[in-house]
């Protein structure tokens, strides 16, 4: 349609637009690049060169140091564990509730919907929830991070809408054959809803991997903290590298070369970012769909 008499002004506008977006993309990417470069150079190069486009002396020293500290390595394992378990838990709870409440014949459905919707507008707030978790004795346990995930109302709304538009005939014929709702859900609905579970699996995984505030509240034991919190202590609280190995061992392993905080922080940022980058292609595809679905049906 744009082929109709495109004037000189329009061409200039198109060109300006491309220049604008190239510049914007550069601005978005450049900070990431700078951090990556910081993590890959030694302190001499870092302090001498104002802008590092590419390392003159590429070195994995910062990464080697980070991975030689037990606390950092353990925190990655903890994050993987919490992310996996929390994702399964969130998917399980939310999809089950969404399926049950997608059935319009369910007596008391409206009341149950109100019970859920209320949580969107009002909650006890930081302190009452914190005190409750403490009362339950969940401090310094991973349950404090996983159990409260519960039913996310936005995800619930989208899932319910999805289950609603599944063809009913399969479910009904299975029920004719004597299968109950739980069997129907696992045998028929779940296999039909793979894209849905993929979408929300990614939702939950990213949120859990990135989650630092609940760990800050509930995991005070330094050896049980997940990566996001360890990273926060490094970059925000400036509490040096985690679980520093003693001077002698450091000297033996890395020579006399000194570690520098910026390099270690940058390396930690990169380590925390890489898993998200790895699944980014899928994220982009599914998240966009999830948002659309939510905005249409919600």
């Amino acid at each position: 349609m744009g082929r109709l008499a495109r004037g000189r002004g329009e061409t200039i506008f198109d060109a300006a637009l491309v220049v604008f977006f190239v510049a914007l993309s550069f601005l978005m990417i450049f900070p990431f690049w700078t951090v990556l470069m910081t993590s890959l150079v030694n302190i001499g190069e870092f302090t001498r060169r104002p802008v590092i486009w590419w390392p003159r002396d590429l070195t994995p020293l910062s990464y080697q140091y980070l991975f030689s500290t037990p606390r950092f390595v353990r925190s990655i394992g903890i994050s993987v564990y919490i992310t996996a378990l929390g994702t399964l838990w969130g998917l399980f709870l939310t999809s089950q509730v969404a399926y049950a409440l997608s059935k319009k014949t369910l007596p008391g459905r409206n009341f149950l919907l109100i019970v859920l919707t209320f949580t969107m507008f009002f909650s006890g707030g930081l302190i009452p929830v914190y005190l409750w978790i403490r009362t339950l004795g969940l401090m310094n346990t991973y349950w404090a991070l996983i159990l409260p995930i519960g039913v996310n109302v936005w995800n619930f709304i989208v899932m319910k809408a999805f289950f609603n538009q599944l063809p009913q005939s399969l479910e009904e014929s299975a029920k004719m054959d004597g299968a109950n709702d739980i069997v129907v859900f696992w045998r028929i609905v779940v296999p039909l809803s793979k894209p849905l579970f993929a979408t929300f699996g990614l939702f939950y995984s990213v949120a859990l991997w990135n989650s630092w505030f609940p760990p800050l509240l509930y995991i005070t034991d330094r050896d049980r903290q997940p990566l996001a919190l360890v990273l926060r202590q490094m970059v925000v609280s400036q509490i040096g590298p985690p679980g520093e190995i003693d001077q002698a061992r450091r000297a033996a392993r890395f020579g006399t070369m000194d570690m520098f905080l910026e390099g270690l922080n940058a390396a930690a940022v990169i380590v925390a970012t890489i898993p998200i980058l790895c699944i980014y292609p899928w994220l982009q595809k599914y998240f966009a769909k999830g948002v659309m679905l939510g905005s249409v049906k919600g």
């Binding site: 709870l93 399926y99 949580t119 006890g124 005190l131 739980i182 859900f185």
Partner: peptide
């Protein structure tokens, strides 16, 4: 509909336990 209620129970228990029960702390 008993099986559907059964499916909804874990989710509602979690909502009650971690959203509604802490509301009692508001009296503070």
């Amino acid at each position: 509909h008993r099986y559907l209620y059964l499916m909804a129970i874990p989710g509602f228990v979690s909502v009650i336990l971690f959203v509604y029960v802490p509301l009692y702390g508001l009296q503070l």
